[in-house]
Computed example of a mutant assay.
Amino acid sequence: MKGILYLLAIFTLGVLGGIFADQILCPFMMEKSIFEPYGLDTRTVYVTKEEKITIQENTALKNAIEKTEKAVVGIKTVTKTGKISEGSGMVLTSDGMVITLAELVPAGSECCLFIEGKETSFQILKISVADNLALLKVKNNNLLGLSFADAGKTKIGEAVFMLGMISEKGVSFLAANGGMVRFIGENYIETNILEKSSLKGSPLLNVSGEVLGINTIAQDGKVSAIPIAKVKSFVGL
């Protein structure tokens, strides 16, 4: 009988000791820095302002790509000499107005235009070699046109991305590259993006999916854009 009472006493003390340790002792001791090396610190982990901004920008970029991808067109050109070049353009209006670079549709060349991977016939409505812009018209209707950014609100250091079409073995793929605005000139927007020439003619967009300009790519891969204000003036919008 005494043995049973002894065991019950030990059990009761054990239960009370466990409650004391769980509710009082452990929370108190976890506040002490001596336990930090052992991973016992369960305090709230705070996300910094910079981390929040990065998460928000990444989410916004993903949403912007999904919002604008159907307005990007691919262009493939074969010149008189047989040289093949590739680039992109973008849909301006739902009734089939498309803008691209003049260098992608040179006179006397054979050009193909692709919308959502399908080849589409087109005609050149207007072209300016000096401005390096060309306005095209496709027969497709109910297309997705892009919104234009307010040029006056574009800032140096603003996050931007380019979205264009590339092809491989006859199959077209969407491609994106991002960076920031490095300099804003009267006739161009300079970025810190480096890219292959196959994405020239693609739109430069902000993280809201608004068009800042049409991309040109130098021989060293540096990306600059013809400002959207100049594009609108050329088109007559």
Rank of each mutant, 00 (worst) to 15 (best):
D131P: 01
A107P: 04
N142A: 14
K137A: 05
I84Q: 11
P227L: 00
F148W: 10
I127P: 00
K76M: 15
G178T: 03
G170T: 00
L61W: 08
G108E: 01
G157P: 11
A151I: 12
V105G: 06
T81L: 04
T79N: 05
G74E: 00
E186I: 09
T100C: 09
G145K: 09
S109D: 07
I226T: 11
S167A: 10
T12Q: 07
G82K: 12
K118Q: 11
K169Q: 11
F122V: 02
S147A: 10
K118R: 10
L205E: 03
D220F: 01
L92S: 05
L13F: 06
L13R: 08
N132A: 07
T44V: 15
A159V: 08
V98C: 09
L212G: 04
E36K: 13
V15D: 11
L163T: 08
T44R: 09
G201W: 00
G3D: 14
L113D: 01
I115F: 08
V105M: 05
T77G: 04
I228R: 08
S147L: 09
K62P: 05
N58K: 06
L101S: 13
L92I: 10
E86H: 03
D41Y: 13
F183E: 13
M165F: 03
G145S: 12
S208V: 01
C26F: 06
Y38L: 08
V160Y: 02
A176M: 05
T68A: 15
S94T: 14
L136C: 00
L144N: 11
P203Y: 01
G89C: 01
S109T: 00
S224T: 10
L25M: 10
V181F: 04
E195H: 07
T79P: 03
E66T: 06
G14Y: 10
S147M: 07
T44A: 12
V47T: 15
N140Q: 15
A176E: 14
K230C: 04
I193C: 00
I166D: 11
Y38T: 02
Y188F: 12
P227A: 01
E110A: 14
L204R: 01
I217C: 09
P27I: 03
F183P: 00
T120E: 07
E195Y: 03
G82S: 09
V223I: 03
G236C: 07
E51I: 06
N187W: 10
I65W: 07
F122N: 11
T100N: 11
V129R: 08
N132E: 03
K118I: 04
E190N: 14
G145V: 07
S167F: 00
L113F: 02
D131I: 01
L5M: 05
G152P: 11
S208A: 13
G87A: 01
C111N: 14
L25P: 03
S85G: 07
I99D: 04
A64Y: 06
M1R: 09
V72G: 06
M165A: 09
N187I: 04
K52F: 13
Q219M: 14
D95V: 04
Y46R: 09
I4L: 14
L113P: 02
E50C: 06
